[in-house]
Every structure is written in structure tokens, then in C-alpha cells.
Simulated scan of single mutants.
Amino acid sequence: MPSLRKTLAAACALAVLTLSAGLGAVPAARAAETTVFAAASLKTALDEITAAYAAGGGGKVTVSYGGSSTLAKQIEQGAPADIFISASVDWMDTLAEGKLIRPDSRVDLLGNTLVLVAHGADAPKLEISGQLDLAGLLGDGRLAMALVDSVPAGVYGKAALTSLGLWPSVEAKVVQSNNVRIALSLVASGDAPFGIVYASDARAESNVSVVGTFPAGSHAPIVFPVALTADARPEAEAFLAFLLGASARAAFERQGFQVLAN
């Protein structure tokens, strides 16, 4: 499947370059801006929110997007971030155990749902259950997912498929990517006929269809916590407050997130 390999390699390379560029730019500019490390699935909403914050005089915010596992490990290794928004409670817990976040600032910010998407804007709906012949629907194609053992969207996806008894039949057909937005891009391009992403991701891409929603009980609740890092600068508190405000809430809801924070 040469086309799929090329597309995935290019997407992964772009993600790495984007993250590296963001990290590389931070030390020189750190005194003048707030640096946020955020799960890739937040990109559409956060791009809008940071633009609104800057336009309102709040200052510049630089966001590095990636898989929550990659970002958490970067923070563990000393990357200069002020705020971390994870797609996984577990990765935030890992940083908390290492005393790398300010526990008093931690908030469960967002919730989400897990969906099966198909290539094209008008794919037929499916019922997501243990009776779904997902392997048969895939045929010789691949199921695009984020890394199933480390990236939250992939972890949730594998858990859901396992709970429904579908994982053994599709495991060999899964193509894994460094973050959920790369998985989404594989479906949008047609390199993978189906993928598992968050509902909010599906809204960000016009060339995919949500064909089914995984039952809530098939995986752990999807929660995006946010916190200031242990060495966050004072100005980061203002952006965290903005994230918890009405303008950000509206942007998150437009992108299909459920806002959990009051």
C-alpha cells in the first residue's frame, strides 16, 4: 500500500516538524508569550480561541499540538510550557505525580465522544455494536487510529473495539499514527476508508462522514484536563482564565466539545 505509507510518512513528518518548530521557538520568545502544549484534537478550537485572546489585547499565545503522550514526555524532559491540555486524565496524572503541574490549577475542561468516520461526505450510517462486521467493511483497506497504546484517542478506540469484541478481527488492519488529526487526514484523503476519531475532529474535516458513535460504556469517559505547569509564568494564568470563560466555551461547543468546566 505505497500511497498510504507515503501519506502517513509525510503527515508524521509534518507533525514532528510542527512540534519541533514550536518547541524550538519557545526559549527565545518565552518572556513575551504564553506557551501551551495541547492535544492535537484541540487545534481548530484553540486556533480560534488564541486569535480572539490576542485580538482582545491578551497577548500572544503559542500552541504546540501533538499526541498527549508526546507532549507530556516533552514536559517531563524540560520543554518550556506554561499550560498543558491533555486528551487523557492519565497523562495529566503522570505529570502531577512528577510535580510538574500546579495541582490547584487543574480543571477538567472538556468532554468528547468517540466516532467512526468514513471517507467522503455522504457515507451511509452504521450501527456500532458487537454485530458490526467492521473487518468486512474494511476489506483490503485500513482502519486509521492514533497510537493505540499511548495516544488517548487510540487508547479509547482500542478499548471500545475490545469491549465490543471487534478488536481481534481488525487489529491487523489498523494503521496507527502519532496523533488523531493524522488519522483523520488518512480518512479524508481516502488512504484509509474508515477511522476512529473524536466527534470534534470529524467537524474539522469536510471530506469525512460520521457513520456511527461508539457507546459511552464501551470506553472510559473522554475528559480533557487542563493545568498550569509547575514553572508557568504569571501571565499564563490570564490565558487559563480565558479558556474557562464564555468566549472560549462558545468556540469549544461550536467544534463539538462538551464543556465540563463551570
Rank of each mutant, 00 (worst) to 15 (best):
T34M: 02
G111E: 05
D149F: 08
Y156I: 01
E97C: 06
A153G: 07
Q77V: 02
K99M: 08
M92W: 01
T44E: 13
L147G: 15
A153I: 12
G59S: 10
V89W: 06
P103L: 13
I128Q: 01
G139E: 08
A144W: 07
G136D: 08
G59T: 10
V148I: 13
E76Y: 08
K43Q: 12
L46W: 06
V117M: 02
I49C: 01
H119I: 05
Q74V: 12
L110T: 04
L138I: 08
D47M: 10
M145D: 09
V107W: 00
G120V: 03
D140H: 14
E48F: 01
K73D: 14
D149E: 12
L114F: 08
F37H: 03
L134I: 07
A52R: 14
A28C: 00
L95H: 04
K158I: 04
G157R: 04
E127W: 04
Y65H: 13
R142H: 13
I75A: 09
D47W: 08
E97Y: 09
A28S: 10
D47Q: 15
T70G: 13
P124D: 06
E127Q: 13
A55H: 12
D140Q: 15
A25V: 04
I49S: 02
A28L: 11
I128Y: 03
V36F: 01
P27N: 05
V115Q: 06
R30T: 03
G58P: 12
